[in-house]
């Protein structure tokens, strides 16, 4: 049996002093961390004290801390609600579609952009594809209504070609695809930035050597570009899986309607509706949020473990 030597308290003190000295030496660099730390402290960790509401019945006069404890009653109520399970099913389905189809799209786009030889054309394509990211979902939903509504451009074109109008926005069969394609349209360009940056950091001499060795474009992509991107793709994949219960709150909220609640109501919109559109049930909506957070964390850790086992790379 081997016994690991424990560092002595004196040695610990030396290491701490060394660390602090290092921080002080680079204090201005560390100062740059402060806004980020403050952001997480104020907006992510600070509000966590409200999680206790998941086990409480909120009373306005008592506030979060003073409200009455109700044990697991909020969760028990929630797990009996058919709407909750429907929201989970929709969240997983929509997020699954996003991971399967929307996630690879910017990777592919980045590789294609990288293959464009003319720098001017490449820049124009990047700007055009990135622009929709800067429009909010509220504006984009108006554009989508005008495009796909009954009197919208698409239906007018369908009628002009002798077809029948389609109820795009109120069709249960179409709605999820509408979400998916509008997401790809809005975010793919923006998401290519990370991958483009990664590709640009790949050593150019590898491409030159491969070209001399007779590798064609496709072979260069498969054997140089893709391996060079793999670690960043893995990291973003793990992060995306860790957010699987986030299926696009603002997008769904601005686009859905009662006709498609059955296929479009996700956990976040469900929380919104039970919190603000009816008599508020803060305890129950916090319980949903809590449930969501736990599932997300579990899935992220699972994805990390799977990734390490399969590729030897992980995020944590």
């Amino acid at each position: 049996m081997t016994v690991k030597a424990q560092p002595s308290p004196a040695r610990k003190g030396v290491r701490l002093r060394r660390l602090l000295r290092e921080i002080w030496r680079n204090r201005f660099m560390y100062l740059l961390l402060v806004p980020g730390l403050l952001y997480f402290a104020v907006f992510c960790y600070g509000p966590m004290y409200g999680i206790q509401l998941a086990w409480k019945e909120f009373a306005a006069n008592a506030g979060v801390v003073g409200s009455r404890w109700v044990g697991w009653a909020n969760f028990a109520f929630l797990f009996k609600e058919a709407e909750f399970w429907n929201a989970i099913r929709n969240t997983l389905t929509i997020a699954g579609m996003q991971i399967a189809l929307a996630f690879p799209f910017p990777i592919l786009l980045a590789i294609l952009f990288n293959e464009v030889w003319q720098p001017g054309l490449k820049r124009v394509m990047q700007i055009v594809s990135t622009f929709p990211h800067f429009l909010s979902w509220v504006i984009l939903s108006s554009i989508i209504f005008n495009l796909f509504g009954n009197a919208g451009t698409v239906n007018n074109m369908v009628v002009a070609f002798g077809g029948q109008k389609l109820n795009f926005l109120m069709s249960k069969e179409i709605f999820r695809w509408l979400l998916l394609f509008s997401l790809i349209w809005k975010e793919s360009g923006w998401n290519t930035i990370l991958y483009m940056a990664t590709i640009s950091s790949i050593d150019q001499s590898l491409y030159e050597a491969a070209t001399i060795d007779g590798a064609n474009r496709f072979q260069r992509i498969v054997h140089i570009t893709w391996p060079g991107m793999q670690s960043i793709v893995t990291a973003t994949f793990i992060l995306r899986v860790g957010m699987i219960m986030n299926a696009g709150y603002m997008q769904v909220l601005t686009l859905y309607n009662p006709s498609v609640y059955e296929v479009g109501d996700i956990l976040d919109t469900y929380i919104y509706r039970i919190t603000f559109q009816k008599a508020p049930k803060y305890g129950i909506s916090t319980a949903v949020g809590m449930f969501k957070g736990v599932v997300n964390a579990a899935l992220m850790l699972s994805a990390e473990a799977v990734s390490r086992r399969l590729s030897g790379e992980g995020l944590l």
């Binding site: 403050l38 960790y45 600070g46 409200g50 506030g63 979060v64 801390v65 003073g66």
Partner: peptide
């Protein structure tokens, strides 16, 4: 920051 974030009664 934590305190300001909301650890106060309404």
């Amino acid at each position: 920051s934590l305190l300001l974030a909301g650890c106060q009664a309404p």
